[in-house]
Amino acid sequence: MKVDKEEILHIAKLACLNIKEDEIEAYRKNLQDILNFANILDNVKTEDVSETITSTSNVNVFREDEIKEFKEKELLLQNAPEKDSGMFSIPKVIQ
């Protein structure tokens, strides 16, 4: 696949990242290099092969849905970039 500038901007938008005008080419070239390198996979026949998504044999791991109270609210809030009255604070979303 050939990657162009618009593609990089689209992907950056999906990934919620800003890419500055003067960085676009570096990101584009890097992605292109890796995709070119990944073309090696075209040589592998995979018609009747199923996908592996994980290395364990675990399927549907269940446990009791028990409530465990977390009593150290202040430890969570100490990491908040902004907080107010025991809550996380964000800018107004409804204009």
């Binding site: 996979l41 995979t46 092969v49 996908e51 592996t52 290395s55």
Partner: peptide, 10 residues
């Protein structure tokens, strides 16, 4: 494709 090749590697 990569997930399939992963199966072959395993």
């Amino acid at each position: 494709k990569a997930q399939k090749v992963r199966t072959i590697l395993k």
